[in-house]
């Protein structure tokens, strides 16, 4: 495929190793042709690679398969999943995904991207509803944002929210930026 068609989340084979595209930005340098600036992550090592390609460059996209998997638990080193079709259990080393620990909820189902029988990536929905398990004292925010405070959600992530959010309420979080989106009344 052409580098111009690269999208966030796809997998590429770079110098023989699989990488996930975590950031993609088009750049047109003054008087230059079109480039795409990429941040790539190796699921095996967690290593982040910066690469800039011309949009006309050829890249090798990896054909991957995705599986619906239930997240069972995590330990120090890995996330443990169960394939909901075959009931096979397997683990995804945490090294490339340490930050996911604060976003994934035991028992929830996630898409796991597999390549050559090996897990390559875990897909967390862009927006997820969590319960607030701990609400701290309100702190006065800057005048633009309005008053805000910190709360902890069930996965342990701390999030800045408007002052009216109470413990036990459910809130929607943007899993990319870890930012509060809205309160969910159910």
């Amino acid at each position: 495929m052409k580098a111009g068609a690269i999208d966030k989340g796809i997998a590429l084979l770079i110098k023989g190793s699989p990488f996930i595209v975590v950031e993609r930005e088009f750049v047109n340098p003054g008087k230059g042709s079109a480039f795409v600036r990429l941040k790539l992550k190796s699921p095996a090592t967690g290593r982040v690679l910066k690469e800039t390609m011309k949009t006309q460059d050829n890249v090798e996209e990896i054909i991957v398969e995705d599986k619906e998997c239930q997240f069972l638990y995590s330990d120090e080193a890995a996330f443990h999943f169960m394939d909901t079709e075959t009931y096979d259990q397997f683990e995804v080393p945490m090294v490339g995904f340490a930050d996911y620990k604060l976003l994934m909820r035991d028992g929830d189902t996630y898409k796991v991207i597999m390549w050559e029988e090996k897990p390559l990536d875990i897909i967390i929905p862009y927006k997820v509803v969590y319960e607030v398990t701990e609400a701290f004292e309100g702190v006065k925010g800057d005048t633009v944002q309005g008053a805000s405070k910190l709360v902890k959600i069930e996965t342990g992530l701390e999030v800045k929210v408007p002052i009216f959010i109470k413990q036990g309420e459910r809130i929607m979080i943007n899993t990319e930026t870890h930012e509060y989106v809205e309160r969910v009344n159910s």
């Binding site: 770079i14 110098k15 750049v27 340098p29 230059g32 042709s33 480039f35 600036r37 690679l49 910066k50 690469e51 800039t52 390609m53 011309k54 460059d57």
Partner: peptide, 25 residues
């Protein structure tokens, strides 16, 4: 620097690859 310039790249293309990867950001 770990970049993979193309065979067909001009001097300017390679310059831009370096500039956009490591300098501009």
């Amino acid at each position: 620097l770990g970049l993979s310039p193309n065979k067909t790249d001009s001097w300017e293309d390679i310059f831009n690859r370096i500039f956009l990867s490591f300098i501009e950001p």
